[in-house]
Design a protein around this nucleic acid. Structure first.
Lengths: 353, 353
DNA sequence: TTGAAAGCGCTAACAT
DNA sequence: ATGTTAGCGCTTTCAA
């Protein structure tokens, strides 16, 4: 069906020049006579030549591919084939249920694409899957890894660092690892939420925290609490959620049971805020009249939620673009030392407060 | 920092055998003395050898990579750099806002992973992006493409077919193209929804259709209408949505305005069903007591929606596994002719009816 | 400015 | 059963 693809050799013959010259033209190396350039270009056109990536990679030791890894902390305790598949499905479903991840992917692709780089999507939720990531990179299938962890005690970063593979993390790892990372000043985010709710005149505040095994959750909570304390409210009721809509509903329910008179709630992400809004409404509270709600992330649910959410925005696109840039520099051998870049959150006010 | 990676040659020297023998062991080719196998295996261990993928691909003409393409039909009318970026962001956000896509990715990865294959995530929403996909494949960066279109008049399938690239589509293309595809019997899905609502005693039914530019939407609508007609209800009010939560809310609002006494609604996907439920509740209707709601897809929102949705399930994991299998066969040169595989929808009854 | 030629690391056909 | 060898298609010195 498909005849053999034309090679550099074919183009060279067609243009009456050497392989080297064609290669120079293809790669935009200067020192090529404009006339010959044109000649070659036409030969490329005629033959329909497309450079073979494998051959190129073999000599340049670059693939133009990076691994985009969504990493969990699973220990693969249920390593039966079936159980493993189920674990994978649940893990992926959870990742995709949060539109926050969509912003991450969008940001990464947006930065990679103009540079002719491509992301390979990998999930590292079990020991086996983590090993696959390492192997993939060690084989030179990708030039480096961008890692988004869903757990603080994720073992993957240490594995990557140990193998000396170019890596940039989204979020600071819980145990120090010699890797670059990009992060948000989560504590400031918690502070923004508290200050805003207080400024709105709310005094009986509660909070739905993220999973406390995640550093970001702890920080958001700490920032919220500290600010409340500084304003004379030493005690803030907390319920722990899991960053999912379900868990947000459950947590809000608990808090309402224990504190029926609450008038404001800060949730550690938008998805849980949406859940909180649903429960509040079911329990007869109006948002924001009776209870003000502040979310976190500014993901797409913040806009589609009823009412649209006041939320603490993470500049995800900037963060991922920075990740891609740092990785790129690391791959090219510039930037021998790991660096960290921390971004500031921004309060986005909508209708839920 | 990282010393030169060991090659086959290094391992061969270490084990005192030839490169070919090491290669055979690595690739699990039989006809190798067990003792020598062990010898080689130990040498691999000692040297920390990992085969170079580029070198291997160069000779096998396989990469073990497939492009997972989410394709739109954008004409790139606003091709300014900035506008393009915005278009990309919006496109990706929309794709990720629907958890249905999560099931697609999960299914694809679940099938690819045990076969040591990997998906490169690509978005083809503009002419430029489409060209990038073609180029990527023509360079041999990936062995083939799995394509999920969001529009019926997507130009990508024809481009892929024209270039003779191994491809499998999710959903039948609107204009015939010589490519394999996997699809759902959407019409039957619409029928299931109608029969279920009628069986529940609902008679004043309406429907929120998907974008009518999408074949699947038309089919679901047709199946619903046909069944209604066959049961003596020739007229069914329709409002067109865009598969988004927002559009579902808007459509439901319209329908309620025009038909305040409606007692059942079929929406063409779960996300719009969720929107419909929200609007119904805001307008004082109880679900399912006053109005029964049937969604489509059985994505994760069907479970998280309040109430949990009765919905028409697509066996997405089976469908994507089939896609991957068909592509694999196509890549290996088996299966010269395109085939189509159509799956049956299943009604999943929950609390919204 | 252009060409000749030496590999990059691997697989596979062929020889033994 | 194992080794020898010829490329796969490209980039990149090194000469000219």
């Amino acid at each position: 069906m498909s005849r053999q693809a034309p090679t550099l050799e074919d183009v060279a013959r067609e243009a009456g020049v050497s392989r080297a010259t064609v290669s120079r033209v293809v790669n935009g190396v200067r020192n090529v006579d404009p006339a010959i350039q044109e000649l070659v270009r036409r030969a490329i056109e005629r033959t329909g030549y497309a450079p073979n990536k494998a051959a190129r990679s073999l000599v340049t030791r670059r693939t133009g591919t990076v691994a985009l890894v969504v990493s969990g902390a699973g220990d693969g305790s249920g390593t039966e084939e079936a159980a493993d598949t189920g674990e994978h499905t649940a893990f992926v479903a959870r990742v995709f249920a949060d539109p926050f991840f969509g912003r991450v992917v969008s940001g990464v692709v947006g930065h990679l694409r103009p540079r002719a780089m491509h992301p390979v999507l990998m999930f590292a939720e079990t020991p086996q899957a983590r090993q696959d990531v390492i192997t993939y990179l060690r084989q030179g299938s990708a030039d480096g890894a961008l890692v988004v962890s869903t757990h603080a005690d994720d073992p993957l970063p240490a594995l990557l660092a140990g193998a000396g593979l170019p890596t940039v993390l989204f979020a600071r790892p819980s145990r120090p690892v010699a890797l670059s990372y990009v992060d948000l000043a989560h504590r400031d985010g918690g502070r923004l939420a508290a200050e805003h709710l207080l400024a709105r005149g709310r005094r009986r505040l509660v909070t739905v925290a993220g999973p406390l095994g995640v550093t970001a959750s702890q920080e958001r909570l700490a920032g919220f609490r500290d600010t409340m304390a500084r304003h004379g409210h030493p005690y803030v009721p907390v319920a722990e959620g899991g960053f999912t809509l379900d868990s947000g509903m459950a947590a809000m329910g608990e808090l309402l049971d224990a504190h029926p008179d609450l008038d404001g709630v800060f949730t550690a992400n938008d998805l849980m805020a949406q859940g909180a809004c649903q429960v509040l409404r079911e329990r007869g509270r109006r948002v924001p009249e009776d209870v003000a709600v502040v979310g976190f992330d500014d993901s797409s649910v913040a806009v589609t939620c009823r009412p649209p959410l006041t939320t603490v925005r993470q500049p995800v696109e900037d963060m991922t673009a920075t990740m891609a840039r740092l990785l790129d520099e690391q791959i090219r051998g510039e930037r021998p030392e790991p660096v960290s870049v921390v971004f500031d959150p921004v309060l986005v006010v909508r209708d839920s407060t």
